[in-house]
């Protein structure tokens, strides 16, 4: 566990597009889905996720239960985790730098709750939870 911030690699959409491209074209003699089309697919998936988060926020906004019930909405990705959107009431706070009193306005927050499968996979890379839905990822 000597991994430090400075040596940590960052995975971006490019890597994900690459994995999707390889998966969709495996066992095929000709390319079925181009890299460009794979990128479009990945983009749309993330766009839909963002749209859904926005939509869930609007739903919360019009929830008659209001803040008292601490309502929340979830976007559930089985095997990965839940994206949870919550409403936070305004509350008094302090600027930690100078102790000055400030009012923290009401807001919506987006959090992620990892699934048990994801947590186990990260802690036991050789265990069954780390295996993939598709076998093409190396």
């Amino acid at each position: 566990m000597s991994n430090t911030q400075s040596t940590q690699q960052t995975v971006t959409k490019a890597q994900i597009v690459d994995d999707v491209y390889r998966e969709l074209n495996k066992d095929k003699e000709q390319t079925l889905v181009t890299r460009k089309a794979s990128a479009k697919l990945v983009d749309q998936v993330f766009e839909l996720i963002k749209d859904e988060i926005h939509h869930l926020k609007d739903e919360l906004d019009s929830d008659p239960a209001g803040a008292e019930e601490r309502p929340e909405r979830r976007l559930k990705i089985s095997g990965f985790g839940n994206f949870i959107i919550r409403y936070k009431r305004s509350r008094p706070g302090r600027n930690p730098q100078n102790g000055e009193k400030i009012d923290i306005s009401s807001r919506y927050v987006l959090t992620f709750k990892p699934s048990q499968v994801l947590k186990k996979a990260i802690n036991h890379p050789d265990g069954p939870e780390a295996s993939k839905v598709s076998e093409s990822l190396s």
Binding site: V11, Q15, I16, D19, V20, E23, L24, S38, L41, V42, V45, I77, G79, F80, L118, A121, A130, K132, V133, S134, S136, L137
Partner: peptide, 10 residues
């Protein structure tokens, strides 16, 4: 494709 996206992230 969708499954691979989340597998890739995992």
């Amino acid at each position: 494709a969708v499954n691979v996206i989340f597998d890739s992230m995992k």
